[in-house]
Nucleic acid binder design. Structure first.
Lengths: 239, 239
DNA sequence: TAAATCGGTGCCATAATTTGGCACCAAATG
DNA sequence: CATTTGGTGCCAAATTATGGCACCGATTTA
């Protein structure tokens, strides 16, 4: 077994069991005691806080405050994942074990097959904290990570974005808009955009947007988004 | 030289030079031709699209569409980075080379020293695309990544957040709020929160928030954020 | 056409790294 | 005290990475 996989496994087992002895770990992983101890050292070097107690009934314990993960993902992957996972975490408190088992299929479609292994490991490693009451995954609407690349480009480079939008009644229209702002109301993300055809601002729920595409050569200027603020004015450039 | 560093170096050189021969790479990196060819193979397996041409004047070329990065970061790191980088990209179009050289110090303070190496590599690898006019980095206000952990927890777990807030006039107050929504108006991020003391919603510019801390044992319910929408109502749960 | 350049593959010995076993220490427990 | 458990140093064995070499095919240039 690979060193990375072993590190992941150790963290996962510690998170699952709460506490484990070096011998337990060695046996479950299929490596020698010496190797496990070396791995523990490496994990500590990486910043994991692992408590240990000698003697009978002793063992290793991962500090519950340690939110760290062993998995390292590419930027694109993490961007997509953060949004999905944050949405889920926010939607209801639910343990990721459930998510990993039952809800994975939903994300598997969005991410390419090779990335799924990484994803599963990420979820295995993620800190679950106080999340408690179990929920049915199928209730949740995720933001489709496949939308993000086109979306991000349009948003950041200020290019017109064309997409299909399905409204509350299920009616689908095609929109061409200037993406002006994002509004995050967990678990939902909204796009705040100027609708050129309607000459007004519109709010679009991200999970109802499909087939987004950039309209080339249509750079626009930022508009003053009509939100009022009594603390500080919007659209002001930072110092 | 480590295999990871070599992969990073290859991608970086290809991005920089546009095209390079295997021998060029081998010499610059200080590895054998055989090893470089093996690395190219590995990078292709990882999904990098690398074109090649035989004969004089031939060589390797990284597909400009290939936005991939070699660096893999932890979730926390990437979360912080994405926001900073997105803010910068959005603020003005500016080449990351500048950013890496001049603006790095600003981020170095926020991230721990060990992570800076990763960060520099990330920036080296990032796809720069059409970014062109140079800008003075010091103009830009970044969201301090150090704020994020406390902030994220409060936001997602619905806990009260206490922080110092400096308003337009520079007056600093201490606030205790219920974080309800995020509003992204590039390059600025706003926190939309219910201010318990003032019994009303307030907007806080992220870069004016300091010393955020979670107020334990103060879980709140989501409120209906007073934004109107004619496309679909807010705060509606996704299907 | 011939020579040179350049990517690409297979093979194998050598170099480097990782792993496992062993001895042994310190702390805790019954 | 014997036992359990974490932890370290050391070294040989196993595993993996590397470099050199021969050689192929494509392309360019003379």
């Amino acid at each position: 077994m690979n060193i990375r996989l072993r590190h992941d496994a150790i963290v996962r087992i510690l998170r699952r069991n709460g506490t484990a002895t070096v011998n337990d770990l060695a046996e479950e992983i299929g490596a020698s005691r010496r190797t496990v101890l070396r791995d523990i050292g490496a994990l500590r070097d990486q910043g994991f806080v692992i408590h240990s107690e000698s003697g009978r009934g002793g063992g290793l314990q991962l500090d519950p405050e340690s939110v760290q993960t062993t998995t390292r993902l590419s930027v694109t992957e993490v961007f997509a994942l953060i949004i999905s996972v944050a949405a889920m975490r926010a939607a209801r408190s639910l343990p990721f074990s459930d998510f990993a088992d039952a809800g994975l299929a939903k994300i598997e479609k969005a991410l390419s097959a090779e990335k799924v292994r990484d994803l599963r490991r990420l979820l295995d490693c993620l800190y679950v904290g106080q999340l408690s009451p179990k929920q049915n995954i199928s209730d949740l609407g995720l933001i489709d990570p496949a939308l993000l690349p086109a979306f991000e480009t349009a948003f950041l480079q200020r290019l017109h974005l064309r997409f299909h939008y399905r409204d509350v009644k299920g009616v689908e229209t095609i929109r061409e808009v200037e993406p002006q702002a994002m509004l995050i109301l967990p678990p939902l993300w909204y796009l705040v955009a100027w609708d050129a055809a309607r000459e007004d601002f519109r709010y679009f729920r991200m999970d109802r947007i499909s087939k987004p595409e950039i309209v080339e050569g249509t750079q626009f200027r930022r508009r003053h988004v009509p939100f009022e603020d009594d603390v500080c004015p919007f659209n002001e450039m930072p110092r």
